[in-house]
Computed example of a mutant assay.
Amino acid sequence: MNAAHMQTRIPATHIPGFSIAPELQFIPINNLPKIVEPPEGFVVIGGGKTGVDAILWLLEQQVDPDRITWIVPRDSWFTDRKNLQPSPKFLKFFLNDQAAQFEALEKADSIDDLFYRLEKAGVLLRIDKNVKPRMHRGATISQLELVQLKRIKNIVRMGHIISLEKSEMILEGGRIAIKPNHIFVDCSANALNHSETVPIFSGNTITLQPVRGGQIVFSAAFIAHVETAYKDEIQKNRLCRVVPLPNHDTDWIKMMAGTMQNQHNWKKEPELTKWLYNNRLDGFSHLLADIPADDEELQAILKRMRNSIKPAMTKLEKFFSELTYSP
């Protein structure tokens, strides 16, 4: 078993990719609750989910938003959390989200237009509508959290930090003076490294990687089941095609394509369909299968999905082929 391929990192042990002057108060996010004396201000480093969590925690502690500086090398697309809650109460939101994704794909005439439609439909969220996100890692936030994040006005969009000096921050896009008695909160660690994908099954080695976008724990359980239920390595890898971790904004397309391809292959296996229905980590298979025929509202959404899925998959393949990534 190779569980280290994606090189998991946590904030408490992460080594930042920039130099730090010893005079500065530099802490991982974990140490925020240990602060005794309020500083003059906070500088949160990192525009991903950890940075979001740090900002929200500070605001919950009644820190003045004007005392928070947020270093955001790349703005991010976020997912509305209510659309991913695996319970009957939120099933309508989940189905609407899925239908909206298919309809956005079907109607979009370009990749830019696709993201415009995904945002308009509430599938994707961003903090500032005047800034085009260049990152998507599948992070979720709620609408209430988005309102809170918008209270932060001092957002620095000058690329990554090169070094933190005693009197200034040196970033890719310029320099900013550092005020005394500020605490720098490191939220720059990538939880999982975006390593090159390899076959999950190879001889006696199982290399853990995602098989469904945004669902790492489910993926591990699914891989374990396939290992025990199937013998042929080619078949196991066909059922467990790697869905690469997203990083760039357009990786939403890449993640969607991989997830849909796997889902298509799984539906051909009655044994897998049964396993998914009974697996609590899957979340939605049993909810979808058990929708009453007389539930007009949910059946109407399912009809939207059925009407859009084929043209959506055709457009998804087209957009996927258009993508080019810089190294």
Rank of each mutant, 00 (worst) to 15 (best):
M1H: 13
A3P: 05
A4L: 12
A4M: 12
A4Y: 10
A12T: 11
T13E: 13
H14R: 05
G17Y: 04
N30D: 15
L32T: 08
V36C: 07
P38C: 12
E40Q: 00
G46K: 02
G48L: 02
L59E: 11
T69Q: 04
P73T: 02
P73Y: 01
R74P: 01
W77I: 03
T79E: 15
R81S: 15
R81M: 12
K82S: 15
N83G: 10
N83S: 10
N83W: 01
Q85Y: 06
Q85F: 04
F90I: 05
F94Q: 04
F94W: 07
N96A: 06
A100L: 08
A104P: 01
L114N: 02
Y116R: 13
Y116Q: 14
R117N: 03
A121C: 06
G122D: 03
V131S: 06
K132F: 12
P133L: 05
A139W: 01
A139P: 01
I141F: 05
Q143C: 13
L149E: 14
L149F: 03
L149M: 13
K153C: 10
K153W: 03
I178H: 00
I178D: 00
K179A: 00
K179N: 00
P180Q: 15
H182N: 06
L192N: 09
G203K: 10
G203C: 08
G203F: 07
N204H: 10
T207M: 08
L208W: 11
Q215G: 03
A220V: 02
A221N: 14
A221P: 04
A221F: 09
A224M: 11
A224R: 13
H225D: 07
N237L: 08
V243T: 01
L245N: 04
W252D: 02
K254R: 14
M256K: 11
A257K: 11
G258Y: 04
N262I: 04
P270M: 11
K274N: 13
K274A: 15
L276P: 03
G283I: 06
F284M: 11
L288N: 01
L288M: 14
P292M: 09
A300C: 06
M305I: 15
M313R: 01
K315G: 01
E317T: 09
E317P: 03
F319I: 01
S321P: 01
E322D: 13
L323K: 09
T324L: 10
